[in-house]
Design a protein around this nucleic acid. Structure first.
Lengths: 344, 344
DNA sequence: TTGAAAGCGATACCAT
DNA sequence: ATGGTATCGCTTTCAA
């Protein structure tokens, strides 16, 4: 592949001139003369010259590449990470940066090899592995690589984060149900008490309080880790159990959309009509919601904004640690309705 | 950040020795002596040395990075691309390669800047934009960058591809329905006649023939591009129309899962029970299938294998152009059942 | 087994 | 406005 030196030779100018011309650089407002610049450009185009980013990144010691950890579908079937990534890549392209994928299965050492090896200018991390994050952030700090945690926030790690205001969303969900007349609500979820569950449950409890509802009448339930089945099945079992009690809830909020969709399924299996006999709300607004019957009412998390915000933060304020919380949006579709007078 | 030269100085050896030691390189089976090597390694570890991949890639002219185009969620809501990507990243990591994301919204020239600029060793492409592909492959050939098209195959482009045997899958789907007693089947899909629709329809027609069914009694329907609604709505309208005809089909095959899920929805709206009154089959096996009511019977495409195959092909046989077709698997869940005696 | 020196492609500084 | 030269960090001959 043709290099700047080759062009310089053919144009009978110095490599410096070629560099200045091709990069459109101006020192104190002036640069290479029009005609020389055009001559250089023409030669470059003729040979299909491509700027060697590896070389320039090396001299500069930075690579305009940003790493993405955990934005693939490896660990969990977290569908939405794709959206975060998509927004990030778009934001990156707009600023002439690009994204490099980091394997979710790599060890911390391997990650550091990739991150430092390519002199990445930052890393977007989506992980709930606290222990790993702890070691990783400590090392990243050592190498002065800015990082931002997206979709989670472990405040003890002292690292920047971008998240959505899920507590507020769930709070609104409770109000929505209350206004529809529901007085027997349940909040259910997986048993893993990662921050996101705690935060959302917090919003739930606050919502109850504001509506004058008591937690003991509107309890939270979590799946039983003892059950040796797939987590999805556990949720369905839990939901089915709740729906078969004699004073069953008239509304259920899932701590994420997957849970809500499984509640829909449990209801369907039991012949309970949603939303006539039961209202259901999720958190997320993931794509399967679009296909559920009926379409799911949910707290829409701004995945695209989250991806873009994370990326921009790394570029605009790499040093400063910040914790961004983006607004959510209760999307009312068709799984919520006025509470039936007689559920019993 | 500490460099090899720094280490060489501290260890009082040449930079060559450091390079050889750290890379564990052996020339004719021999290399740096045990103790010197250990000394070098210890110093490197002490300072947290990280190999500068930019520098070594530059000298070598290749970067052990592979580009991914169209594996984000930009254009369509193609959920499965994430799985392809995830498999690719895993396969890459296993071979000490890594993935770089290319923006789906970039122009061909911008893509080339990224691809050649970073001296990528290959590109995985997932796109159905024939015109763009045409120009891109022509240029990539010029720069000797191997590429592989995944999830599509435009045979006229003469480029390598990795795809799944969807025709065979749909053929099997027809047989499955036939064995359940169905004699009034429809194949429906979006109106866009990209290769994948044509291929799947081909499998459908072959299946019909093998079962002795006539196409005119088991027709294909496609949405009306004239309808100025969202494609999803168009599918639902089409499905609803078919389901309301006096001799409605007893089974419908969607040309992809999205279509099948929308058929489910249309049936649900009309109070038609699936699978008792209507059988439905999709193609894909995307994640929303897991949440549908009932769980969708579908032709499962091997996304993970496709991603891995595409990546391995680029590394193992970059020169040779090949067209790989991976086997699919009819996954029978709960949307297919014995044909009801009286549909009328 | 180890070292010296050239080169990869581009940038930056200092001259002219 | 343009050119010369050192430099970035590493690899690769070629000698010793």
């Amino acid at each position: 592949m043709i290099s700047m030196a080759d062009i310089a030779k053919e144009a009978k100018v110095s490599r410096t001139s070629v560099s200045l011309a091709l990069n459109e650089r101006y020192i104190d407002g002036v640069s290479i003369s029009e005609d020389i610049r055009n001559r250089i450009k023409k030669i470059a185009a003729k040979h299909g010259y491509r700027h060697n980013v590896l070389a320039s990144s090396m001299t500069k010691g930075k690579s305009r590449m940003i790493g993405c950890l955990g934005l693939d579908q490896s660990e969990e079937s977290a569908l939405f990470v794709g959206q975060i990534m998509t927004a990030a890549i778009k934001a990156a392209a707009a600023r002439d940066y690009s994204l490099k994928l980091l394997s979710s299965e790599a060890t911390v050492e391997q990650l550091l090899d990739e991150i430092c090896g390519y002199r990445l200018s930052g890393v977007i991390i989506r992980s709930r592995n606290h222990k790993m994050l702890e070691r990783l952030t400590e090392r990243l700090e050592h190498y002065h690589v800015p990082a931002v945690l997206v979709d989670t926030n472990y405040s003890d790690l002292g690292m920047s984060s971008v998240n959505s205001d899920d507590a507020e969303g769930v709070r609104q969900a409770v109000h929505h149900l209350y206004e529809l007349g529901h007085r027997r609500i349940n909040f259910i979820g997986f048993e893993d008490f990662t921050p996101f569950t705690i935060v959302r449950r917090g919003g739930y409890i606050q919502g109850l309080e504001e509506c004058g509802l008591k937690l003991e009448n509107n309890p939270c339930y979590f799946t039983d880790p003892g059950e040796l089945r797939h987590p999805f099945e556990r949720v369905e079992i839990l939901a089915a159990k709740l729906l078969q009690e004699k004073t069953r809830p008239t509304a259920i909020i899932g701590n994420c959309d997957e849970v809500a969709l499984l509640v829909l399924r449990a209801a369907w299996r039991l012949g309970i009509n949603v939303p006539d006999q039961l209202s259901v709300i999720g958190v997320g607004d993931i794509s399967p919601d679009l296909f559920s019957c009926p379409p799911l009412t949910t707290v829409a998390r701004p995945y695209l904004s989250m991806g873009a915000a994370a990326l921009n933060k790394l570029i605009d304020a790499p040093e400063e640690t910040s914790n961004m919380v983006l607004p959510v949006n209760l999307v009312i579709r068709q799984t919520t309705a006025v509470c039936p007078i007689n559920v019993e």
